[in-house]
Design a protein around this nucleic acid. Structure first.
Lengths: 147, 147
DNA sequence: AGCTATTAGTTGGCAGTACGAACCGTCGTC
DNA sequence: GACGACGGTTCGTACTGCCAACTAATAGCT
């Protein structure tokens, strides 16, 4: 029924419920780490996403599932903090590539490492085989789910 | 490096990365369903949490990991929409129990069902045994992780 | 009983998030 | 050269979430 009933606590959860709970934990880890590094979760996500190299606004909005207008503001704020710059594309003067500054790249790395570290630490609570199974199964599921 | 590099796409993901990705998918499902029902994800979460019965503000803020002040506003907005009411506790005239209205309870149920349905549907992409293993392993992990 | 410390919840201010609609400039095409 | 499509930004609005300060009621201590 509810997903939080006492009766469900100790016993078996639904697959869906387990995912939702797990998602919350991930969100909390994300929030905690981001906060420790002085950025918001969204800003941290943006930084992490850019560590692979510059990306254009449209592509970025697709990746982050954000309206372009929302992204504009987000990039503004992170740019204002000096973690990234908009590099105008010489080929297309409308477009711009969002690119990390040195400082931004460092921060992105740090945050990403820390988040992964904590999640891996969390995963240490279960046997290696289980963890590996979860990983592969989730990978498979994610590959199937249009994202 | 980034968690979104092309090299990581097809091959093996980290456990942490898989969790993060999964978390995003769950968030999107949550956002989509909530939107379809005309509420925000946070409001939907609040409704779902209350389907098990009325809860006090302090307990609720603990469950939702929200400052009480943040919760006040959230409850205000949902109350304004007629989905819940604050029932003052006769035993403690400071406290109040947040309780769903009929309409709110219906909405909460609907949203919860729909979210679960979509996640289960997503899980249909992988074999039953894998799904079951994920569920039990995650349950175990969640039980260990202080939440 | 009386005083204090604690607790439950609210208010106000602030920064950030996110959407939609309207907009500007550039590009590609006819 | 005009036009539609595209890349981004701006504006207005609603919501989120934190902190600090506050009110009122309870609980504890003497």
């Amino acid at each position: 029924m509810t997903g939080t009933t006492a009766t469900e606590m100790g016993a078996d959860l639904t697959f869906a419920t387990a995912l939702v709970r797990m998602s919350h934990v991930v969100q909390y880890v994300f929030a905690d780490v981001s906060r420790e590094y002085g950025v918001t979760p969204q800003q941290a996500q943006l930084l992490c996403m850019l560590t692979g190299g510059p990306i254009g606004m449209t592509e970025l909005s697709r990746l982050l599932h954000l309206e372009k207008s929302s992204l504009s503001g987000l990039v503004d704020r992170v740019e204002r903090r000096g973690f990234l710059t908009r590099v105008t594309d010489p080929r297309d003067r409308r477009a711009c590539q969002v690119s990390l500054t040195t400082e931004g790249a460092q921060l992105g790395e740090k945050v990403h490492e820390e988040i992964c570290a904590r999640l891996e630490a969390l995963g240490a609570a279960i046997p290696d085989t289980d963890r590996h199974r979860i990983t592969t199964a989730l990978t498979h599921l994610l590959a199937r789910s249009a994202l």
